[in-house]
Design a protein around this nucleic acid. Structure first.
Lengths: 247, 247
DNA sequence: ACCTGAACACCGTTCAAGT
DNA sequence: ACCTGAACACCGTTCAAGT
């Protein structure tokens, strides 16, 4: 029971009391350490699986110690969110000197790729409850948004069209990401063809009863959003937007 | 303690034993009753807030009784899902004799309206983990999808374009719904203007530092998806799609 | 065949301490 | 000022019964 005598433990028969009870020193814990471990956990497992007890165990501290630095779990998640927002923006490449349409084709492909390759970023920025990035302390987001909208204005779009155009492409992009991520989280393959792997009888039934689906069956994917699907839709929006440009 | 003598309770001093302990008769519970109560709860509160103990309490049964009919909570949610899918399809109006573009303008507006006015439907079909409606026992979904794609084919689109067009509009629509629903669930107003209600100083700072955002500030909404935003994007997609049509 | 409570391993959070 | 365990009210689920 004496925590002051670590040597007293008999080597071949470890004293559970001496290994369990060590009280952590004063400055051993802080918000950064907790955040870092929370991210490590989220990457290994999932944001959804993150819990205060699990986090405390990994840090080797009592659960309640976490509550000194974050009054609730929600507060911790908020702190993670603002770091994730910065991470996202720093990952987003900047393309200079491209035509506006080619620029946004790349921009939203970059956006989608970041979300699909960084689960934690995706889960915070796409899947978790409402995020208004505006008003985040770092003005990175405002800077970037301003720059992107500026490109649309410079291309000759009216202000209303420019704002709506950005929002439409953005919502479309995150919509496709959400479908893919949901499939992953639900344990199914996001690229699964809808009409593949059916037995011959169902296959024939589809072609007979559903002529339109039969004719288009090669192009249906369970998430509605492969990379090809995504770029078809994005190009269609870009095509539609061009019509707002004075010629 | 005698549950066979309800009259024995003294009126002005109810016997707790007689009110608590009554064991429910054999056929009192069944899957339909449980499902119905689960829906009633979800409408009153939220799908997220649904729990087995709460559900059991409302039904006046032991928690474990529920597990006779649904082996896990997930099984119950699956049962709810397939009913919700049918509800959704029966709510979706059918427009006859419209031009293809006007048809889909209405179709996706209907879809969006149903999701935004029926939280439970929205939460199962948009917000919950991956849903592959294909293969649902009722072939309502296949029927409807076949019909809609048929309209695109009849309009003259190539099969590949028809399938991708439907998917793009569908993903876009559910993307806008997701943004709105997330704002609601997060407790914020989905229609909040992004740059409204800021103090004059921040307001001026935006106009000075962010010229593009300043010029477009009336058109930014925190969810990127008011009805106007939605229809701008949908119309843009429809405009873009028209270009695939032979003239 | 159907319904039951006790019990288990989790969760977020509070509280009254210890140092 | 920081760290702690005990305790509480929840959760989904299992199990060994009762009828």
């Amino acid at each position: 029971m004496q925590e002051s005598a670590p040597m007293s433990a008999i080597p071949h028969e470890p004293d559970p009391a001496s290994t369990r009870k060590k009280r952590n020193p004063r400055g051993s814990l802080n918000a950064e350490v907790i955040l870092a471990e929370a991210f490590r956990f989220s990457k290994e497992e999932t944001v959804e699986a993150l819990s205060m007890p699990k986090l405390a165990k990994r840090l080797g501290v009592g659960v309640t110690s976490l509550y000194w630095y974050f009054h609730t779990k929600e507060e911790l998640l908020q702190a993670m969110l603002s770091q994730v927002a910065d991470d996202y923006l720093s990952l987003l490449p900047d393309h200079e000197g491209l035509a506006w349409d080619e620029h946004f084709r790349r921009y939203f492909n970059d956006m989608r790729r970041i979300f699909l390759t960084h689960d934690v970023i995706c889960d915070f920025l796409i899947m978790r409850t409402h995020v208004s990035m505006i008003g985040s302390d770092s003005s990175f987001f405002m800077d970037r948004l301003n720059k992107e909208v500026g490109i649309l204005l410079a291309a000759g779009f009216e202000p209303e069209i420019a704002a709506r155009a950005y929002q439409a492409m953005s919502v479309y992009t995150s919509g496709t990401v959400q479908k893919v991520r949901m499939a992953e989280l639900g344990g199914s393959d996001p690229n699964r063809k809808m009409f593949a792997g059916l037995d011959e009888q169902t296959q024939q039934a589809i072609e007979i009863n559903y002529s339109a689906l039969g004719a288009t069956q090669d192009y249906w994917n369970s998430t509605y959003s492969t990379w090809n699907d995504f770029n078809f839709g994005l190009n269609t929006i870009l095509d539609g937007l061009r019509m707002y440009l004075p010629d």
